[in-house]
Design a protein around this nucleic acid. Structure first.
Lengths: 338, 338
DNA sequence: CAATAAAATGTAAGCGTTTTCATTTTCAAG
DNA sequence: CTTGAAAATGAAAACGCTTACATTTTATTG
């Protein structure tokens, strides 16, 4: 592999100074038509394209941002975080930002590393530890949180309207006549758990319904665990007529539990999910869920990040992405048998 | 945000030359204990960490690699490609490579861009167009293909053993006594389609079974399309007793079709999937599928890439990741009713 | 203590750009 | 054909680091 051509090679071959070559590429209107052509010809003959590293160095900016997935509760394998990633990717491409991704397992060195690599901003997905955040901040790296809200610190973040989503789900069920509604919640990031939990309690209260501790089950993130938790919940004489799942896979677990206990969904049990992931339409019956536009979340992230990187919008507020009920086959009027 | 400290600042504060500071960081054993300590103190007082861009420039290497997802048939939203991404991420982290990701929508500028950004190697996921590949090659950027095999060119690639996977599925079904076996195939990348298709035909032939055109249905990638295709396949008097799905979501579509037509799985119809994605255990009954270790695929990619970047292993061969049948609830002996 | 080798440090060039400032070229108008 | 302003170009410094080479310090030995 021969040496890569530099601006000097082009300069030599085309017989103009490096300054002119540089200008021919970065501000073409400043060089005479004829010269420009000469330069381009030489460049393409040499297979030259400007070295962005060198440019970045003199320009003192890199347009480099990172999407860091905080491993504890998040992974790119989640359709949710993958969707955010897709959105980020799209927008980063459009804005000509270079996107680096990484998980935050070795977060000790992470921030130093990011500074070193001249990363100008990071999007922190999931449950970022306060220390990590501080570390980034103290290094002057812009931050936006997604799916998390830093307690105390004033940081921009983009969030799905979890609380309202759960409220919609509960409202929907109540409209269908349900009164005994339970919830199964997974070990998502603390923020998410809190929001969905609070959302549930609030929504129930708003309808004058109280929820006892036996009406809320916690489980891990996998479907097996959800199934077990749900079985306990459903294996009671006074069992709920509806359960709202903490997310779609948990809802799938609930459905599985119902099947095991021979409780028919939706006839004898309504269930809702959250995220409207692709599994919803694979389940039988198809799962009613809450849609959140994750790609838009991702896009927002980079928009905000870019703004803060450029010094605008120190606003540091939260951007709420709305949530929408998608009715499918898992909810039915209570007591009906149709 | 104050100016970032440079090596000169540290040099000044600690009273040693920049050369020594540099050495204190990149080859600590070359500087005296006492000096080193002074340097580190100064550095941390200034919140200094070496500018990797400057370093890269003089060192003429960047350790920068990219994972490019070729949009046409692939997206990070696929659990499959997400899994590969996870593996790549892990390994890249471990090897201290900086990982850039991007989709290949604007592939025209892509290679030039990559060269410009001094990317040393790319992992091309999905159906990379020959022109894109050429463009990278001509710029001296190392390539490894994943889930694709470049026709003609000698390029390293890592592949799941698709053909063998399908064979295992077919063998399994045949062992259970099935003879009328159909296949539903989605519009994946041409390579995948070809492999799975050929694998099917070959496996059947090996057992002396021929497959007619009415036994293979094509559909899009979504479950609805798969369901429709499967319905046509199953709505025949002489319908198959088993169908192998092109992947898990297609298999889910098949199951859905069966349900609509009131054909019980697995009693009256066995079905297999491919990829062993998380949906398998959510379906009812749980889906028998082929597991491929996607994370390992991702890891292999970066290992190979690193090797080719360093000039070793011009081998350019294919790395085959084996595939394993995971038996679950969707296959049963033909004719049984238990 | 002198001589020498080894270890530690310093000096300065260079990596591939951009950009300021100075210089040259171009061109329109007198 | 001059003149002057505008347009185009060039020379060189700077960005923050590494490293070859030169120099100084330290340690070792007779």
């Amino acid at each position: 592999m021969r040496m890569k051509a530099t601006i000097h090679d082009v300069s030599r071959l085309s017989g103009v100074s490096t300054a002119t070559v540089s200008r021919a590429f970065s501000s073409p209107d400043q060089v005479k038509e004829a010269t420009r052509r000469k330069v381009y010809e030489a460049a393409s003959a040499l297979n030259y394209s400007p070295n962005a590293i060198a440019r970045d160095m003199v320009l003192q900016r890199t347009n480099r941002v990172a999407y860091i997935i905080c491993k504890k509760h998040a992974t790119i394998l989640d359709e949710f975080y993958a969707g955010i990633c897709e959105g980020i990717m799209r927008r980063a491409n459009a804005l000509n930002l270079q996107l680096i991704i990484s998980t935050a397992d070795d977060w000790q060195k992470m921030a130093a590393n990011a500074q070193s690599k001249q990363i100008e901003g990071v999007i922190l997905g999931g449950d970022a530890e306060a220390e990590l955040i501080n570390d980034f901040q103290s290094r002057g790296i812009s931050i936006v949180l997604v799916n998390n809200r830093a307690a105390g610190m004033e940081l921009p973040c983009v969030l799905a309207d979890e609380r309202d989503g759960i409220r919609q789900a509960v409202d929907h069920l109540i409209t269908l006549g349900h009164k005994r509604i339970a919830m199964v919640l997974g070990r998502f990031s603390p923020y998410i758990v809190r929001e969905r939990y609070t959302g549930f309690i609030e929504a129930m209260k708003r309808h004058g319904l109280t929820v006892g501790s036996q009406d809320i089950a916690m489980c891990e993130r996998d479907i097996e665990s959800a199934t077990e938790a749900a079985e306990k919940l459903l294996f009671r004489p006074e069992r709920p007529t509806a359960v709202v799942g903490g997310n779609d896979v948990i809802a799938a677990g609930v459905m599985k539990a119902a099947r095991r206990l021979n409780i028919s969904v939706p006839k004898a049990l309504s269930v809702t999910g959250f995220d409207d992931s692709s599994i919803c339409s694979m389940l039988e019956p198809e799962l009613t869920s809450m849609r959140v536009d994750v790609q838009r979340m991702g896009e927002s992230c980079v928009d905000i990040l870019k703004d803060t990187m450029e010094g605008k919008s120190q606003a540091a507020g939260a951007v709420m992405i709305p949530t929408r009920l998608i009715k499918r086959g898992t909810c039915q009027e209570v007591g009906q048998n149709g």
